[in-house]
Simulated scan of single mutants.
Amino acid sequence: MAGAVEIEAAGEMLTLLPQRALFWPARAMLVIADIHFGKAASFRAQGVPVPRGTTTENLDMLTTLAAATGATSILFLGDFLHARHAHAAATMAALHAWRERHSHLALTLVRGNHDSHAGDPPPSLAITVVDEPYRIGPLVFVHHPQLHPEGYVLAGHVHPVYRLAARGDALRLPCFLFGREGGMLPSFGAFTGGHPVTPAQHDRLFLAAPDMVIELTARGRGQA
């Protein structure tokens, strides 16, 4: 895909997408972290005025990425539903309509902390739900960043962003962060926010700009 970057981890080639997702070509698998369906609905249920349409935006992007990559499966790294209010009728109707149009996709959710409060997706969505760690070949998929003795870890949860600053101006961008034993994916969901991260000297940092993934070298991060 345009603007994507390929990296190697545990002997596997992985594709980092500007849309804040990862594609594993050998398995035809999209990996998505922290989509947080129903977060806006949860805020509105508590009387906080927030934008509408984030569920549709997320689902449309999943459709686009699945078609563009030829993915046959999607793996969600936790926080599929934001809270119990995410089970609102409108959110569930949108998810079911999307699922009917994409019944050929195998969907798997690695439970995250929000999933424990929101509850698993309804069985009618046909999503396989597993606990972390979830190992496939040399890769270990989790929600919470952690080390694992049997594979290279890919995690969500943090919603990593990196702050670029120059001449008094600053910009925060979602990012992928890869270390020697594991990596973190940016939050995929619209309206999810981000947490600034500080990479170690030998970590690889990839900014997810709107139309391309850009590796920011140690020199670009101000490190010798």
Rank of each mutant, 00 (worst) to 15 (best):
residue 14 L to Q: 06
residue 220 G to A: 11
residue 42 S to Y: 10
residue 135 R to C: 04
residue 8 E to M: 09
residue 28 A to I: 00
residue 112 G to V: 13
residue 56 T to D: 13
residue 96 H to G: 15
residue 152 Y to D: 11
residue 152 Y to A: 12
residue 165 A to N: 10
residue 204 R to A: 14
residue 31 V to I: 14
residue 56 T to C: 10
residue 41 A to E: 15
residue 77 L to R: 08
residue 206 F to V: 07
residue 178 F to Y: 13
residue 181 E to V: 03
residue 24 W to V: 08
residue 186 P to S: 03
residue 112 G to E: 09
residue 61 M to P: 04
residue 191 F to E: 04
residue 203 D to R: 01
residue 28 A to L: 05
residue 183 G to T: 11
residue 187 S to F: 00
residue 40 A to K: 05
residue 125 L to W: 11
residue 103 S to L: 14
residue 163 R to D: 03
residue 138 P to W: 03
residue 26 A to F: 02
residue 148 H to I: 07
residue 45 A to L: 09
residue 212 M to L: 10
residue 28 A to G: 09
residue 20 R to C: 11
residue 4 A to E: 06
residue 197 V to T: 08
residue 139 L to N: 06
residue 36 H to T: 12
residue 42 S to H: 15
residue 79 D to Y: 09
residue 217 T to C: 11
residue 169 D to G: 11
residue 156 G to I: 01
residue 78 G to C: 10
residue 114 H to F: 00
residue 26 A to G: 05
residue 195 H to C: 06
residue 80 F to E: 08
residue 128 T to M: 07
residue 81 L to N: 14
residue 111 R to Y: 00
residue 189 G to R: 01
residue 193 G to H: 07
residue 43 F to P: 08
residue 25 P to I: 05
residue 66 A to Q: 12
residue 188 F to T: 00
residue 77 L to D: 13
residue 182 G to C: 04
residue 77 L to F: 04
residue 115 D to F: 03
residue 149 P to I: 03
residue 194 G to K: 02
residue 122 P to Q: 06
residue 5 V to I: 03
residue 222 G to Q: 04
residue 33 A to H: 01
residue 76 F to V: 13
residue 49 P to F: 04
residue 185 L to M: 12
residue 153 V to K: 03
residue 87 H to G: 10
residue 137 G to W: 00
residue 113 N to Q: 07
residue 148 H to V: 10
residue 215 E to R: 06
residue 8 E to T: 13
residue 26 A to P: 02
residue 114 H to W: 00
residue 29 M to P: 02
residue 123 P to G: 10
residue 211 D to W: 05
residue 64 T to E: 15
residue 145 P to H: 01
residue 140 V to I: 00
residue 27 R to Q: 13
residue 117 H to L: 10
residue 160 P to F: 02
residue 212 M to I: 02
residue 2 A to C: 00
residue 110 V to I: 13
residue 132 E to T: 04
residue 41 A to F: 07
residue 60 D to Q: 14
